[in-house]
Amino acid sequence: MQFWALIVDSFRESVDRKIFWVLVGLTLLITLVMLSVGFAGEEVTLFFGMWSTETDRFNPLSDIGRANLVGFVVYLLASTMMGWIGVTLMIIATAGAFPAFSERGALDVVLAKPINRARLFLYKYFATMVFVVLQGTLFFVLTFLVMWLRWGVWAPGYLLSIVFLVLLFSYLYCVSVLVAVKTQSAVAAILLTLFAWVLFALIHQAPSVFETFPDLKKRRTVYVAVRVASWIPPKTGDFPYLAARWSQAGTSIDALPYFDMDTATELERTQIERARQVEEQELAKNQFYSIGSSLLFEIVVVLLAMWTFARKDY
């Protein structure tokens, strides 16, 4: 009952924000643009048939065409629009939730209810994610429907992007909440979260410097320290990769242009199959590492924020 009350309250708080409707507008605009594009064999039409051209790269009747279409949507629209612009707007929109919730005079009545502070914090933490779940669901369901009904591309795995988007947001939101409960400032929460996002990306990319400059690997301590440090922060840059892998599951490898399964010999087919299995296992391991280590980071930060929230006087 108490969790549901906080969810309903968070929903009302979300739809009261202008930024919520800006994101809805953005999603509808993207959906409209996607709707205006049509595919019929090798013919591609734009602006509802006003302009057309021919290309086999986006032919939805071929595996390659389907993979390219899904890849285009995932990398250009989902990743850029939702993974970057959307998540940034969501961080801005939700940064004020905890400062407003724990404002002097606002929290008093809530704390005087029969609910312990740790539970109250966690309920509020998850309830605030309603904003992201709503936005993510709207975006991915609408774009999925356009791909399916307008373009004829059936990619149910694409809907898993909702989960990946919520995960990406939650990795950053935990930082925002920690800053918010420490400082009571939405502005500080936004700035430090965006800073943390950039920092995470830099730390995650740091080991690649050693690949570019192999001589640096001779400094063993530094190398090991950088490798270990890169495991700690959440893997925020993996969102498009995860979304793409699951969206194209079962089609991507078949669609790789350098393998023609129809003309391959028996030996080649076996080798390709084996390579595919190895690749899938590697991908599964990477996904587990990416999500697992990021969630571990989030849990630690959330516990720290919860402890701060529970120990404070209001």
Binding site: M1, Q2, W4, A5, L6, V8, D9, R12, E13, D16, A100, E103, R104, G105, A106, D108, V109, V110, A112, K113, P114, I115
Partner: peptide, 26 residues
């Protein structure tokens, strides 16, 4: 409990506020 200088969420209506706080009060 009625605190001094309380601040209720402005996006709720009076009836919604009563329902929200009462739900938290089980």
């Amino acid at each position: 409990y009625l605190p001094e200088d309380h601040r209720f969420p402005g996006y709720l209506t009076g009836a919604q506020l009563l329902d929200y706080y009462a739900a938290l009060g089980k």
